[in-house]
Amino acid sequence: MFKVTPNPPDTDPVPPDAILDAQKLKEIADRAIDLYLSPSPLNASLPPRKPSTIFLINPKIDNETLLVHACESMASASVMASDFAGFLEGPQRSTLLALQQIIMLGELAVNRVLDNLVPAE
Rank of each mutant, 00 (worst) to 15 (best):
N7K: 15
R93H: 04
A29D: 11
Q100M: 05
L97H: 01
S40Q: 10
I33H: 00
V68P: 04
L46A: 13
F84S: 12
D10G: 07
L105S: 14
M74D: 04
P41H: 07
R31G: 12
L66R: 13
N111W: 06
A22M: 10
I103S: 02
G86H: 03
F84T: 10
S52H: 03
Q100H: 05
L37W: 12
P91K: 15
N7R: 13
A29W: 08
Q92T: 09
D21L: 04
M80T: 10
F2M: 08
K50T: 13
S76D: 14
D30Q: 06
A29L: 13
G86S: 06
I28Q: 07
L96F: 05
P15C: 03
D83Q: 13
D10W: 12
Q100E: 12
E107S: 07
D10T: 15
P51L: 02
M104G: 07
I54M: 00
G90S: 06
L37A: 15
E64N: 02
P6F: 11
N58L: 00
T65K: 05
M80I: 13
P16F: 04
T53F: 00
S73H: 05
G90L: 04
P59T: 02
T11C: 09
D62W: 01
P48K: 13
L46Y: 09
P48G: 09
L25R: 15
A109P: 05
F55E: 00
V113H: 07
K3Y: 14
D10S: 15
L67A: 08
N58H: 01
G86D: 03
P13W: 07
L117V: 03
L114V: 06
G106V: 00
P8L: 08
G86I: 01
L117D: 10
P51G: 00
K60D: 13
P16Q: 03
K24S: 14
S38C: 03
A32F: 05
C71H: 12
A70C: 08
F84Y: 13
I103M: 06
R31L: 14
I102W: 06
P48Y: 07
D115Q: 14
D30H: 03
L108R: 09
P59E: 03
R49K: 09
L20Y: 15
A70N: 02
P15M: 01
N7T: 08
S82Q: 10
K26F: 10
P9Q: 12
S78L: 02
F84P: 01
S45W: 02
N43S: 04
L96Y: 04
K50A: 08
I102E: 08
N111T: 07
D12C: 04
E89W: 09
D30I: 03
R93K: 14
A75S: 12
A70V: 04
Q92M: 13
D21K: 00
S94G: 06
D62V: 02
N7A: 14
Q23D: 10
A70W: 02
M1W: 06
V113Q: 07
P51N: 04
P119S: 12
P48M: 11
S45G: 05
K60C: 04
P48I: 08
D17G: 09
E27M: 11
F84M: 11
D83V: 10
L99N: 08
T53N: 00
A98N: 09
L56Q: 00
V68E: 13
M1K: 09
D83Y: 08
L96I: 09
P51Y: 01
I54R: 00
